[in-house]
Simulated assay, not measured.
Amino acid sequence: MSAEIWTGVRERVLALAESPGVEKVFGFPYGGTPLEDPLTEEELADLERYCGVRLPDEYRDFLLHVGAGGAGPTYGVFPVRRDADGAWQWHGDGGDMTLPKRLAEPFRQHVNPEELDALLADQPDEEAYEDIDDYDTANDAWEERLFATLWSDDHTVGAICLCHLGCAQRQWLVVSGPERGRMWDDARCDYVDLEPLGVTFAQWYLNWLTEAEKTAGTVSPSETR
């Protein structure tokens, strides 16, 4: 059971937040509590009904036993919250890129590398235009093609945007399809396709926590027993 993975993890994060060396750690949200309260079983069931999909075990058990979001890799894990109207959404810089009603659709790589390379090579050259308005028109049309190729919502169905790294780079958890339960990096701001990180959600989070404890010079509660 993945629930065992998270035994003592909430306590470790909270202890880390109180340690003198926490200022050296990257991954704690500014202000507020280090971790949001975990979801209840009823809240998790409602979230999954709303999204129409059972979340990967490692992540759903994290929501139940660690928190609905908060401290974690990069700038922290985007919290998932239920709005007053009953709708669920992930909150953070890019959290609204997650489409809860399309999480049951299988995630898949969409961008053809050759098509993307050809598109990037076709970017208008400002020096080739005598009239700046003509250049702006051509470049706007090119940017529309680029957006459709890289940033279509179809590229990230079946995945949850869970954190950001700054400068419009983000990371996603796949919840449907062959890559279910695994993390993907999103550096489309650099005109590249999404790429697998090669780790599951638990590996991604726990690797961060272990390194954070080393950075802060703390010993986890589990190591003192």
Results as ranks from 00 to 15, higher is better:
residue 89 Q to A: 15
residue 93 D to V: 14
residue 167 C to G: 09
residue 113 P to N: 02
residue 62 F to N: 01
residue 178 P to G: 01
residue 140 D to H: 09
residue 63 L to T: 03
residue 223 E to M: 13
residue 193 D to W: 00
residue 112 N to V: 05
residue 70 G to N: 13
residue 183 M to D: 07
residue 156 T to F: 13
residue 183 M to K: 01
residue 44 L to K: 02
residue 216 A to D: 06
residue 158 G to W: 02
residue 171 Q to L: 13
residue 16 L to D: 00
residue 182 R to E: 12
residue 35 L to N: 11
residue 134 D to I: 01
residue 119 L to P: 05
residue 180 R to V: 05
residue 209 L to N: 05
residue 195 E to L: 14
residue 29 P to G: 14
residue 45 A to G: 08
residue 118 A to E: 12
residue 122 D to T: 06
residue 166 G to H: 08
residue 162 L to W: 08
residue 195 E to M: 09
residue 174 V to A: 07
residue 10 R to E: 01
residue 4 E to N: 13
residue 170 R to W: 11
residue 36 E to L: 11
residue 112 N to E: 12
residue 115 E to C: 00
residue 218 T to E: 11
residue 186 D to K: 10
residue 90 W to I: 01
residue 107 F to G: 01
residue 161 C to P: 04
residue 67 G to T: 03
residue 115 E to S: 09
residue 192 V to A: 11
residue 170 R to K: 15
residue 214 K to A: 12
residue 174 V to S: 02
residue 80 V to F: 01
residue 31 G to R: 13
residue 128 A to V: 07
residue 68 A to E: 01
residue 23 E to C: 09
residue 61 D to V: 00
residue 134 D to K: 01
residue 1 M to F: 10
residue 81 R to V: 13
residue 9 V to A: 05
residue 164 H to P: 03
residue 129 Y to D: 06
residue 150 L to Y: 05
residue 116 L to T: 05
residue 171 Q to Y: 12
residue 164 H to D: 15
residue 37 D to V: 10
residue 108 R to P: 02
residue 195 E to V: 12
residue 58 E to R: 05
residue 181 G to T: 03
residue 212 A to I: 06
residue 31 G to N: 14
residue 148 A to E: 15
residue 199 V to W: 11
residue 117 D to S: 12
residue 61 D to I: 05
residue 77 V to P: 01
residue 176 S to H: 03
residue 42 E to R: 12
residue 16 L to T: 06
residue 217 G to S: 09
residue 182 R to Y: 12
residue 161 C to T: 11
residue 181 G to Y: 10
residue 27 G to T: 09
residue 105 E to V: 08
residue 194 L to H: 14
residue 212 A to L: 10
residue 95 G to A: 11
residue 56 P to W: 07
residue 4 E to I: 06
residue 137 T to F: 01
residue 51 C to L: 08
residue 201 F to D: 08
residue 138 A to T: 07
residue 34 P to C: 11
residue 2 S to T: 14
residue 179 E to H: 14
residue 153 D to L: 06
residue 192 V to L: 00
residue 75 Y to T: 14
residue 78 F to Y: 15
residue 214 K to S: 07
residue 138 A to G: 06
residue 48 E to L: 05
residue 193 D to G: 04
residue 92 G to T: 08
residue 72 G to P: 11
residue 214 K to H: 11
residue 38 P to I: 09
residue 42 E to H: 09
residue 183 M to Y: 13
residue 72 G to H: 00
residue 11 E to Q: 15
residue 166 G to D: 08
residue 212 A to W: 07
residue 87 A to G: 10
residue 98 T to L: 05
residue 195 E to R: 14
residue 168 A to H: 14
residue 155 H to A: 13
residue 41 E to S: 11
residue 54 R to G: 02
residue 148 A to L: 04
residue 109 Q to T: 12
residue 123 Q to M: 10
residue 212 A to K: 14
residue 77 V to T: 14
